[in-house]
Computed example of a mutant assay.
Amino acid sequence: MKEESRNPLGARYCAILNAANYISTVLGDWGDNVFFLQLQQSAVALGEEELLGPLGVTESGRLASLEGSLFEGLLGLLERLRGDMLGRLLEAVMRDVQKKAQPYCRDRWLSLPSQCDQATMSLSSLACPLMQCLRDHLLQLQQMLCLPLFQMGWQDLAERLDLFLYQNVILYNHFNEGGAAQLQFDMTRNLFPLFGHYCKRPENFFKHVKEACVILCLNVGSALLLRDVLRQAEEDEEEPGTPEGQQPSPVSALNELGVYRLAPCDVLILLNLRASWPGK
């Protein structure tokens, strides 16, 4: 197993992971089987330590009332093994993806041409290695993992990628109008559809990125109004006793834009990453 762990993207590693998942599924089904339930009751009544192992009063009571299962201990071990192995596999994928994403993270987001200056929008050339790497890994995982594991895997991968892009592309850079439009195009028209093969609304797994794109791509007037609302809300918090109801709630203002995950303080940070302000 140590040898296989050195290559978590290898066929043998994935085969072991599939086997652990299969055994866990079978034991879970057996736990509800009438034969094993009767065996469990008999073992508890006779105090068979060979079957049950050393149990305390609480554990014995749970087994006697059929709340627990003969296979609980083994299932717990298999669950931990499956979680650890799947996590190690996804870490290996993310290392490869992050390596390919480095040029994209350092793109010239502050000086990209505006959407009006381009005949048609196209995928950023620096995003191509990232998208290709991600596509290849998704296809590889789909072929090598059983369906339940693949479902867990791609969802976990999407959420990891969401945080990575949010922290290393969006929060790390400043954006002019063209940069914000390019980022939104790359994400909504290229990244999200990669996961659209596996679910109807892949953007729901990229909430940080999706909502950040909304904020960065707001027109100047809407962005100014939103910034004023958020700043006023901050001032009201610092000065207790300010009459309520005179200003719209920052949360409701964000919800109207479709922003639910990001907090008002996060949105203020994003607004400060915009370069397209009057006077700049």
Rank of each mutant, 00 (worst) to 15 (best):
Y104N: 06
N176R: 03
G179I: 01
D162A: 02
L161C: 05
E234L: 09
N255V: 13
E235F: 03
E72F: 10
L90P: 08
A92W: 13
L138M: 05
R62P: 00
V229K: 01
T58D: 12
I170V: 15
P243D: 09
D96P: 00
L27R: 01
Y13G: 02
L126P: 02
F175D: 05
P278A: 12
V209L: 14
G28V: 01
L27V: 07
A43I: 07
N190Y: 12
F150R: 01
T58G: 08
L78H: 03
L39I: 07
I170W: 12
G76W: 08
A275G: 06
W277G: 01
E239M: 13
K100V: 02
N21H: 09
L257W: 02
P243H: 12
G31A: 15
K99N: 00
M121H: 05
H174Y: 10
L216V: 05
L51E: 08
I215H: 02
R189T: 06
Q115N: 08
A212C: 09
V26A: 09
S252Q: 12
A19D: 07
G31V: 12
E211A: 00
L191E: 06
E203D: 11
L230P: 10
L27M: 10
N173Q: 06
D266E: 14
C213Q: 08
A64R: 15
S249G: 13
D266S: 14
G28M: 03
F195N: 00
V259K: 11
E67T: 12
R80N: 11
E50V: 07
I215Q: 02
Y13N: 04
G53Q: 15
F164R: 00
V220H: 08
L39W: 06
M94E: 09
V26H: 09
Y13H: 10
A45S: 11
E72M: 12
E159K: 13
G87H: 13
V57I: 14
Q155W: 03
Q232W: 00
E239S: 11
F195M: 02
L262I: 04
E235A: 12
F164E: 02
R88F: 09
R160D: 01
S69C: 13
Q182N: 01
R135Q: 15
L51K: 13
I269T: 14
A263Y: 02
L141Q: 04
N272I: 01
T120R: 11
M187C: 15
E244S: 13
R6P: 02
L268F: 00
R95F: 10
M1D: 07
L81K: 07
V229A: 00
V214M: 04
F206Q: 03
L194K: 04
P250D: 05
L273P: 00
N21R: 09
E3L: 09
K280T: 14
A43G: 10
A20F: 07
E79H: 06
N168G: 04
R95M: 14
D236N: 08
P278L: 14
H197A: 15
S60C: 13
L226Y: 07
G73T: 14
F206R: 01
Q184V: 02
L149K: 01
E237N: 09
L165N: 05
C199N: 10
E59W: 10
A275H: 00
L147K: 15
N168V: 01
W30S: 08
E234A: 11
Q41W: 04
P248R: 09
F36G: 07
Q167T: 08
Q182S: 06
V57T: 14
Y198G: 06
L138W: 03
F71P: 08
Q151N: 11
L149E: 07
G83E: 11
A223V: 06
G76N: 13
Q232Y: 02
A180D: 03
